[in-house]
Design a protein around this nucleic acid. Structure first.
Length: 421
RNA sequence: GGAGACUUCGCCUAGUCUGGUCUAUGGCGCCGCACUGCUAAUGCGGUUGGGGUUUACCGCCCCUCCCGGGUUCGAAUCCCGGAGUCUCCGCCA
């Protein structure tokens, strides 16, 4: 949902932005028409209502003919007011439908193009030379850390058990992420992972993503694919003090149907239906959003440095942004077994897109409520275990533990395979 | 799952039975002024929020008594549905 007044002021920017996402330009024009219709309906309703109220005020003191006349006129007005109110409701619904269909406006500077048109901003860390690298699943099975066979037995494909050092590594990784976020002033949050339709719609996950989402029909609830959803909706309908950004670090399980990913990443835990994640989430003033976005990226990189994994940072192209983001940076970790980088973090500047849908505001210098900006960024996920295991593997299948994670695996600096019986 | 009570302008609260003057009472808090070496205390005044109009201010209009419908010329008030909170019963990995 975008600011229609801004649209009027700078239609070229919007059209260019929408074109990058292959959306219809006419949607914008339809929205402007719908907004005019809404204004007109509101004006008519308010005028009728004002007359009705004025007459109604005279009613108690009126007698005889005057009272009869008043009653006749107000009775007539009553029907008109009701009709006008219905027209307002309909006009507002039409406008909202249109707005919900529209993606966010892309930030100036984002690369043009689609999925393959990202720009590599930097590569960090030395990739290890590994002869015939084992992949994370082979390593994880050897360490008795990952069990996908039993995951499939119990829950189906793309489910897994983390056991022993696998469970310890994940808990440690997430704990490390929470500790870092708290150090930088984030408020840690364990949110609900089942949410109503409004938070899903407000964060933009019921558009193109709708087939990716688990829905509980009987209760009309959704399983969230990221704690971004409950963290964004946390302050829905509120007016915040945004003298400085308000920051939360959400720890939650995440659920994704992975409906359109048949055949992709079927091995191991790269693409799964359920995983855990620590997510950073910021509310700030729109004029601060870009700077906050770069801060989130810096914190992600700090986490990657702690687990001693080589990575690169990419600037995602406009056509690959998803509906809510105006700009998105991904960190991709080096995965030796695949000989390529894979996404492990993603930070999005959603500007006022989510705040408009969820009605989240702050007071500007004049004290007037304005829509806030929201941003999110990954701090650690289950998937991180993949590059952590693979980049630190030894020829015998053992895995060196990065210093920062050692306290969480009983102080060990090396995890060794369990011998098969 | 069943029964009952409750939800009012930051917080607490009056009003709901008996519909209009509720443009919502009072207290706390907050803001301003006065008094006062300072603070405190006291006195007086102000203070629901949101949207629109306005360069801004003032002013005016609409919405807002949990949410959505209904009855009515008119709803905080009456009726129906829903949400949430609390109490009791039931159930419970």
């Amino acid at each position: 949902m975008i600011d229609l007044r801004q649209l009027r002021d700078d239609p070229d920017l919007v059209r260019a932005s929408q074109r990058a996402r292959r959306e219809s330009e006419s949607v914008v024009d339809e929205l402007l028409v719908a907004d005019e219709a809404r204004r007109a309906a509101v004006q008519r309703f308010e005028a009728l209502r004002a007359e009705q109220k004025a007459l109604g005020k005279r009613m108690p003191g009126a007698i005889g003919d005057e009272k009869a006349a008043l009653r006749a006129r107000t009775k007539d007005l009553s029907g008109q007011v009701k009709a006008a109110e219905g027209a307002v409701t309909e006009a507002e619904a039409a406008l909202r439908r249109g707005q919900l269909a529209l993606s966010n406006v892309v930030e100036q500077g984002a690369p043009a193009g689609g999925e393959d048109d990202f720009v590599v901003i930097r590569e960090v860390g030395d990739r290890p030379y590994i002869d015939n690298p084992r992949d994370h699943l082979e390593l994880g099975e050897g360490l008795r850390a990952i069990d996908v066979e039993r995951g499939a037995k119990v829950s189906g494909s793309r489910f897994y058990y983390l056991t022993g050092v696998g469970a310890l590594l994940q808990l440690g990784l997430l704990q490390l992420a929470i500790a870092q976020s708290v150090e930088y002033g984030f408020s840690p949050v364990i949110p609900p992972v089942l949410v109503k339709p409004e938070p899903m719609e407000g964060t933009g996950f019921l558009g193109a993503h709708t087939s990716e989402v688990y829905r509980l029909e009987a209760d009309d609830l959704f399983l969230v694919g990221t704690s971004e959803v409950p963290l964004a909706a946390y302050h829905s309908g509120e007016i915040l003090d945004l003298g400085s950004p308000v920051r939360y670090a959400g720890w939650s399980s995440c659920f994704r149907r992975e409906a359109g990913s048949y055949g992709k990443d079927v091995r191991g835990i790269i693409r799964v239906h359920q995983f855990d994640k620590v997510e950073m989430f910021s509310y700030c003033r729109p004029d601060e959003a870009h700077a906050e976005h770069l801060r989130l990226l810096a914190w992600e990189e700090e986490m990657l440095a702690k687990v001693e994994v080589p990575y690169r940072v990419i600037d995602v192209a406009a056509g690959d942004l998803g509906s809510s983001a105006a700009r998105k940076y991904d960190c991709e970790a080096w995965v030796p077994s695949q000989g390529r980088y894979r996404e492990v973090t993603s930070t999005s500047n959603c500007t006022t897109f989510q705040a408009r849908r969820l009605n989240i505001r702050y007071r500007d210098d004049a004290g007037r409520p304005q829509f806030a900006a929201t941003l999110n960024g990954t701090l650690a996920t289950t998937r991180w275990l993949v590059p952590i295991l693979e980049n630190h593997q030894q020829p015998d299948g053992s895995v060196v533990v990065p210093k920062a994670l050692q306290p969480y695996v009983g102080g060990r600096d090396l995890l060794e395979p369990v011998q098969r019986r």
